[in-house]
Design a protein around this nucleic acid. Structure first.
Lengths: 156, 156
DNA sequence: TCTAAATTCGTATTTTTATCGGTATAATAG
DNA sequence: CTATTATACCGATAAAAATACGAATTTAGA
């Protein structure tokens, strides 16, 4: 699918204001509401817009400890990986799980919990119980000066 | 601020369906539209809901290379850190920047680009140009079995 | 270059949704 | 037990979204 300037303008705005009214969106991109809405619906239907979500304040929810955990596996078999991913998927504390290249680790997890106690619980009762997990290295986030879900719109 | 079950139900839904109509939201939590909307507005005004955003499909935008970059600084002075963060903040490819604990690095970046060429450009023309950057270690994401922006709602 | 087809725009109408004021009810504190 | 606060529901009004239709622009082919 080819994106013209209207589409890009729409995506750019929706990435930071997902609940903007169609009327205001149309005004901002200098287009009347009807075609603007048509474009939005199209972007949604082709899957370019995956979802609309509300972003919450972790601290205000009592989630004060964000961490990244590097994990190495003993054996690199499909079964090991599949089971690991299945187990991890059922942990709401795990916001992201990436299979990565690099000498230090196979997986990189982004995990958020209430405090150190919860972190320990997660580490001992969940992570290290999963078959194949051999190495675990944790990093704690002190602050996050950049935190964005907006993807850059490159020109082709 | 204290959250009752209605509030938690609202937040849970908004985290995955940020553009749901107030009527449907009200139905889902078994409440009439008016008080439901009042609660949503309150959650917004206290900052518990930070923003509503559209999540886009990176691949469909031509962004095929996601990476995590660990960075170590030569000196741990406030000026070094401030300048680094200022420089990084102006890079749209950098989705996240975290100041972290751990022996391996001071910062952890989440960076998305079109391809290896773009990655190299970013590394050589941006990152390594920043004063104080002494160590750089990149990991490339092969796949992301878990990818969520929804925070777990713990009970206090 | 001119014409025909296709796409996309804009305006108007209908339908749905959000917002506001008023009232009632239930929980809470004195 | 009564007063007070909080929070619910209902109804009316305002705003926004969805839809339909005619006009304009762009594109492709003769």
């Amino acid at each position: 699918m080819k994106l013209d300037n209207y589409d890009k303008a729409i995506l750019k705005i929706l990435q930071s204001e997902g609940r903007i009214s169609n009327q205001e969106l149309a005004e901002r991109i200098n287009l009347s509401p009807a075609p603007c809405l048509r474009r939005v619906r199209q972007l949604e239907s082709v899957g370019l817009v995956e979802a609309y979500v509300a972003l919450l304040d972790a601290r205000k929810l009592g989630l004060t400890l964000l961490s990244f955990i590097q994990i190495s596996m003993d054996k690199h078999t499909p079964e090991r990986f599949a089971e690991f991913e299945r187990e991890i998927a059922s942990c709401p504390q795990v916001l992201e799980c990436h299979l990565v290249t690099g000498q230090a680790a196979d997986y990189l997890l982004k995990v958020i919990v209430k405090d150190m106690d919860d972190f320990q619980q997660f580490l001992l009762n969940r992570l290290t119980r999963i078959a194949g997990v051999s190495g675990v290295q944790s990093s704690f986030v002190l602050k996050s000066p950049v935190k964005s879900t907006a993807l850059p719109l490159i020109d082709h």
